[in-house]
Amino acid sequence: MTDTFPDAAPDLDFDLKALPKVSLHDHLDGGLRPATIIELAAAVGHPLPSTDPVALGEWFRESADSGSLVRYLETFDHTIAVMQTREGLSRVAKEFVEDLADDGVVYGEVRWAPEQHLQQGLSLDDVVEAVQAGLDAGVDAVAETGRDIQVGQLITAMRHADRGQEIAELAVRHRNNGAVGFDIAGAEDGFLPARFKDAFTYLAAHNFPATVHAGEAAGLESIQSALVDGRALRLGHGVRIAEDITVEFDDEDAATDDGADEVNDNIGLVTLGDLASWVRDRGIALEICPSSNLQTGAIAGFGEGIESHPLDMLYQLGFNVTINTDNRLMSGVTLTDEFELLVETFDYDLDDLLELTLNAAEAAFLPLEEKEALVEYINEAYADLG
Rank of each mutant, 00 (worst) to 15 (best):
A185Y: 06
P310A: 04
F14P: 15
D11L: 13
D189I: 12
V239E: 05
V270D: 01
D198C: 08
E62H: 10
I155M: 10
A300N: 14
L19N: 01
G273K: 00
R282V: 10
E340I: 05
L350K: 14
E344V: 11
I323F: 05
L317D: 13
L170A: 08
F60P: 00
A381H: 05
R147V: 08
D337E: 03
E62P: 05
I245M: 04
R86H: 07
Q165L: 13
E166A: 09
V82Q: 08
A161Y: 15
L48T: 05
D250K: 08
F319H: 06
K94S: 07
T85R: 03
Y107H: 13
G318V: 14
F96N: 06
L286D: 00
K21W: 05
G45H: 05
A276S: 10
I184K: 00
A18K: 15
L56D: 07
K197P: 00
T51A: 14
A143P: 15
Y107D: 06
G268V: 00
E169R: 11
I306H: 07
I149T: 03
G178M: 04
T156D: 11
E344Y: 10
I223Y: 14
D258Q: 08
V44A: 07
P53F: 15
G190T: 05
H174G: 03
S90D: 14
V92H: 09
F200T: 01
S291E: 15
I306D: 00
T345S: 08
D29H: 10
G104T: 06
A42G: 13
D261T: 07
E262G: 15
K21R: 04
V92Q: 02
D347W: 04
I37F: 01
I267Y: 07
E252S: 15
S308L: 03
T325C: 13
V279Q: 01
R195Q: 04
V151G: 07
D3Q: 12
G301F: 04
G259L: 10
V180C: 02
H27R: 01
G67V: 12
T334E: 08
T334K: 09
A43E: 12
D251E: 07
K197Q: 13
G146Y: 12
D140Y: 01
R328A: 10
L69D: 13
K17H: 14
A205V: 09
G186T: 04
I288K: 09
S50C: 08
D140M: 08
Y377K: 15
A171D: 02
E144W: 14
A141P: 03
S50A: 10
A298I: 02
L24Y: 08
I299V: 09
G178T: 04
L374Y: 13
G283Q: 02
V263W: 13
L317R: 10
A9C: 05
G273T: 08
F249E: 02
R240V: 01
T246N: 00
E109P: 01
R61V: 13
S277A: 11
H27M: 04
I245R: 01
E344L: 07
A168N: 07
V110Y: 06
L56T: 02
E87Y: 06
I184Q: 11
N207K: 11
H117T: 03
E369D: 03
A383I: 09
P290G: 08
A255S: 12
S222R: 11
H25W: 00
L233Q: 14
